[in-house]
Amino acid sequence: MTAPLLQAVGLTKRFGGLVANDAIDLGVSEGQVHAVIGPNGAGKTTLLAQLNGELKPDRGTIHFDGRDITALPTATRARLGLARSFQITSVFASFSAVDNVALAVQGQERHSFRFWRDASGDPALAEPAERALERVGLADRSHVPASALAHGQKRQLELAMALAMRPKLLLLDEPMAGMGVEESAAMVTLLAGLKAEVPILLVEHDMDAVFALADQITVLLHGRVIASGPPAEIRRNAEVREAYLGEDAAAGDG
């Protein structure tokens, strides 16, 4: 096998006395959906924040696309193709849906020190933005202010923004959180379709979604990796079942 696209080694993050991430090793390869699961407070969001540069690791290294990105700032990582969607929906409320996505497109341009021309009339931004909205099923909402979107639509918008960054890797933090059954199912279909294009590191609570999508699953507990492997193996893992999967896995197995 070639080297993984993303490789984290020994990532450690402490908050005071709390070890939120404890020597985590994790890799994502091309064509893969790698799911990270674990109960609330296990350290999943902290892990994503370290990967996208928002948090500096206390220890450990991150390699992405053949280079050491451990010391690079968030913006630089984003421009290298590392796109993160957030667990707490953080779209720009005063912008319309399409302007939110257009900003993501703009983020991949060389710079935005362009002071004069009206950005809203620029097809170089609007066209890719509309395409991304169409992919996530928001085409008919493009001119609605983001603040007026329903919760599930905001989650879709988050994903559209990540897609518009022309990412080499998607870091998705609970993309289905708070979605209804139908919306979740649509999101699973969408992510399954994306898989061929862009690998995904998926943090998700919805076990149906995780087992439907993942090629590899890493289980976190108290900041530590307690298991990592293909879905079938994780399903069988006694420690995982006890610690986390519980009823869900048993039912899924049955």
Partner: peptide, 11 residues
């Protein structure tokens, strides 16, 4: 609005 998000978009 949200500087952290702006950075995550590459700015």
């Amino acid at each position: 609005d949200n500087e952290r998000r702006v950075r995550a978009l590459g700015f």
